[in-house]
Simulated assay, not measured.
Amino acid sequence: MADSPGDKTFERYCTFQRGNERGFATRAQHATVMRALLDRWRCEPMKAMGRGGLYTFPVLLRKGILREYRRGGIVGRHFREGTLTNRPLHEWDILNRLFNADFPVPDPLGVVWKRRSLLYTGAIATQYIDARNLAEYLANQDESSAKLLETVGALIRRMHDLCVYHADLHVGNILVARDASGGPSIYFVDFDNARVTAVSQLDRARNMLRLRRSFLKRGLRVTDFEHILRGYGPLDVPAWLETAYEIKGALSDALNRRAGAHVT
Results as ranks from 00 to 15, higher is better:
residue 2 A to S: 10
residue 6 G to Y: 11
residue 9 T to H: 00
residue 11 E to I: 09
residue 16 F to A: 04
residue 17 Q to V: 08
residue 25 A to G: 14
residue 27 R to F: 08
residue 30 H to G: 09
residue 31 A to F: 09
residue 33 V to M: 11
residue 35 R to T: 12
residue 37 L to P: 15
residue 38 L to Q: 07
residue 41 W to N: 10
residue 44 E to W: 12
residue 48 A to D: 15
residue 48 A to S: 14
residue 50 G to Y: 05
residue 52 G to R: 11
residue 52 G to C: 13
residue 53 G to W: 14
residue 55 Y to M: 03
residue 60 L to Q: 13
residue 64 G to N: 07
residue 66 L to H: 06
residue 67 R to W: 09
residue 71 R to C: 05
residue 77 R to H: 15
residue 79 F to L: 13
residue 86 N to I: 02
residue 89 L to K: 09
residue 90 H to L: 11
residue 92 W to Y: 11
residue 100 N to A: 09
residue 100 N to D: 11
residue 101 A to F: 00
residue 101 A to W: 04
residue 104 P to M: 02
residue 115 R to D: 06
residue 119 L to N: 01
residue 122 G to Y: 00
residue 124 I to P: 09
residue 133 N to S: 14
residue 135 A to V: 03
residue 143 E to Y: 03
residue 143 E to S: 10
residue 145 S to K: 06
residue 147 K to N: 09
residue 147 K to T: 13
residue 148 L to Q: 04
residue 150 E to I: 07
residue 160 H to E: 03
residue 163 C to E: 14
residue 166 H to K: 03
residue 166 H to T: 01
residue 171 V to E: 04
residue 173 N to H: 02
residue 176 V to Q: 08
residue 179 D to A: 01
residue 184 P to M: 04
residue 188 F to D: 05
residue 188 F to C: 05
residue 192 D to N: 00
residue 198 A to D: 15
residue 200 S to C: 10
residue 203 D to H: 03
residue 205 A to R: 12
residue 206 R to F: 06
residue 210 R to G: 04
residue 220 L to Y: 02
residue 227 H to R: 00
residue 232 Y to N: 13
residue 246 E to M: 00
residue 250 A to G: 10
residue 252 S to M: 01
residue 260 G to P: 08
